[in-house]
Simulated scan of single mutants.
Amino acid sequence: MIITDQMIDDIALGATVLGTGGGGDPYSGTLMAKVAIANAVKPVELIPLESVEDDWVVVPSSMIGAPTVAIEKLNSQNQMLVAFEVMEKEMDCQIAATFPIEVGGGNSLIPILVAASKGIPVIDCDAMGRAFPESQMVTFYLDGLPSAPNTLADEKGNVVTLQPIDGLWAEQFARAITEKMGGSAAICDYPMRGVEVKRSALGATLSKSIQIGKAIREANANGQDATQAVLDIVGGVRIVSGKIIDIERNTGGGFVTGSVVIAPLKATSEASQECVCVHFQNELLLAHKGESAADINNDNMLASTPDLISILDHETGHPITTDQLCYGQRVDLIAYPCDEKWRTPKGIEVVGPGYFGYQVSYTPIEKLAIKHAGEE
Score class of each variant (00 low, 15 high):
A153E: 10
A153I: 07
A153T: 09
A153C: 10
A153R: 06
D154M: 03
E155H: 14
E155M: 12
K156F: 13
K156G: 14
K156M: 15
G157C: 04
G157I: 08
G157A: 05
G157M: 05
N158W: 08
V159C: 05
V159I: 12
V159M: 05
V160D: 11
V160N: 10
T161A: 06
L162E: 04
L162Y: 02
L162M: 05
Q163H: 12
Q163D: 11
I165P: 08
I165A: 08
I165S: 09
D166G: 01
D166W: 00
G167R: 01
G167L: 06
G167Q: 04
A170L: 05
A170R: 00
Q172G: 09
F173A: 14
F173Q: 13
A174K: 02
A174E: 07
R175E: 07
R175M: 07
A176E: 09
A176L: 06
A176W: 02
A176C: 11
I177L: 03
I177T: 12
I177N: 03
I177A: 05
T178F: 00
T178H: 01
T178G: 02
E179D: 13
E179F: 08
E179I: 14
K180Q: 13
K180A: 15
K180E: 14
K180C: 15
M181W: 04
M181D: 08
M181K: 07
G182D: 04
G182Q: 03
G182V: 01
G182N: 04
G183V: 12
G183M: 06
S184I: 15
S184C: 13
S184P: 15
S184N: 12
I187W: 00
I187Y: 00
I187H: 00
C188L: 04
C188R: 02
Y190S: 03
Y190L: 02
P191R: 03
P191Q: 04
P191W: 02
P191N: 05
P191K: 03
M192Y: 00
M192N: 03
M192W: 00
R193H: 15
R193M: 15
G194Q: 06
V195E: 15
V195A: 12
V195L: 12
V195K: 14
E196K: 05
E196W: 05
E196R: 06
V197N: 11
V197F: 10
V197S: 11
K198I: 05
K198R: 11
R199Y: 11
R199Q: 12
R199D: 12
S200W: 02
A201F: 09
A201E: 10
A201P: 08
A201L: 11
